[in-house]
Design a protein around this nucleic acid. Sequence first.
DNA 1: TTAATACGTCAGTGTTGTTGACATTCCAAG
DNA 2: CTTGGAATGTCAACAACACTGACGTATTAA
Lengths: 170, 170
Amino acid sequence: MTQGQSRPENTRGLLFLTDEQLRKGIEAMFFAYRGFTADPDRILAEKSYGRAHHRALHFIHRSPGTTVNNLLATLGVTKQSLNRVLRTLIEDGLVLNEVGIRDKRQRHLTLTDAGADLESALSNAQSDRMRSAYRQAGADAVYGFCTVLEAMMDPELKEHYEHLTGGEQQ
Amino acid sequence: MTQGQSRPENTRGLLFLTDEQLRKGIEAMFFAYRGFTADPDRILAEKSYGRAHHRALHFIHRSPGTTVNNLLATLGVTKQSLNRVLRTLIEDGLVLNEVGIRDKRQRHLTLTDAGADLESALSNAQSDRMRSAYRQAGADAVYGFCTVLEAMMDPELKEHYEHLTGGEQQ
DNA sequence: TTAATACGTCAGTGTTGTTGACATTCCAAG
DNA sequence: CTTGGAATGTCAACAACACTGACGTATTAA
């Protein structure tokens, strides 16, 4: 905090928000997201992968055995777009693609050891910055951070976010 | 908050953070950023512009008369990439490009009335969601939100962020 | 048997980013 | 006044990642 955001005041139960405060939040999101992706991007560039590969690895790690359709809905891209990424990951031996048992149309996606290694390298790079930011900001700030982010999500996306924590998937 | 993030505990002055908490923050950033850009993206799609046009309009609005080099540093892209975007904005009469007086090599960028109109439409769409999220989350959460985001920025980017608030630009 | 689902793929297109090379204009230092 | 370098603009080529539309193939379910 060098200059810091002035704390919005709560008058008569309704939060008073100036344009300045809102604009500052918008710019904070822009600049912070750049920092958020910077570290994994450097690792990915070495291996000539992109952010899309990172996202796929992350969510496959998070929900091992997930199906293509599940991943599609979580990532919010078209199957053609995801397929391009998945194909290279499978060819390179980072992701396993297994035909479903109950439903043979489905393909279950899992990380191989190599895939888990890369995912973990990317995840660590990102987590390091996140941890440092959390520690700088303090416990209460972290709680507020997540609360605002959750309130900012599209309701449909928020469901995916919450499902991940529940740990379903099949 | 349906499930919510468990509040990290502050033991012996050092914030204790589980992998789960960090991962949740990472996913929150991912899903929230999608919501963050969704509304302006819809407006931009109608006019066959992209996010890059939005960013350019935003920062020109924020610092009227800024130079191309200033904008370049703030946006963190190459001049070729920015030039493509600026050219269409100038051709379409949304941005004014004036040769500098003190230094005639520089081009000073300003929004035209039409440019200001579009910028304001985009900004309002984004601010509406931000305001709603802020109100849902409450004043303390907003303060924490900005604090963590600022701690997440690259130091060099953070300077740009802070300069904007100071309101410099010659 | 038929319709719908899950997946993959081919082809084309658009936005946004990147390098590298090169020209122009202009300021400032020698 | 010449020259080096900074600021700007432009051309070409390329890559990542998104999109649409169309088609094919299993497989499941009605």
